[in-house]
């Protein structure tokens, strides 16, 4: 077993995805196989290898501090499932700010 069901459950919570019990079962089985395959990477000696997070050899990309304008408010809110007086509206937030 390369991944436990509890880990899948925990990770699904981190990703904020609700899984039905049968989904969780199936996904855990599939991820087990996939991670087992991914574990072939453990064979590679990477001790002295630097990670590549950006493939391009470019650096220091910036923009000038000049305003380029904002969207009109209608466009900001056009796709909003719920809105009120120019705000987006969500259920009452009671959780802690992380």
């Amino acid at each position: 077993m390369s991944i436990e069901k509890e880990t899948v459950e925990y990770v699904a919570h981190l990703a904020r995805i609700e899984l039905m019990p049968d989904e969780l079962e199936k996904l855990s089985r599939q991820l087990d196989v996939i991670i087992d395959f991914i574990d072939t990477l453990k064979k590679v000696d990477v001790a002295s290898i630097a990670p590549t997070s950006h493939i391009l050899p470019i650096q220091n990309v910036t923009r000038e501090d000049e305003p380029t304008g904002s969207l009109p408010i209608e466009k900001v809110l056009v796709n909003a499932p719920l809105r009120q007086n120019g705000f987006f509206m969500v259920p009452k937030v009671i959780e802690d700010n992380p």
Partner: peptide, 19 residues
């Protein structure tokens, strides 16, 4: 929302990536 909105493969990849 995310449980209902994402398909099976999307959930699989998001969870694998999060892991």
């Amino acid at each position: 929302t995310r449980g209902a909105g994402f398909g099976e493969e999307a959930k699989r990849r998001i969870i694998l990536g999060t892991f």
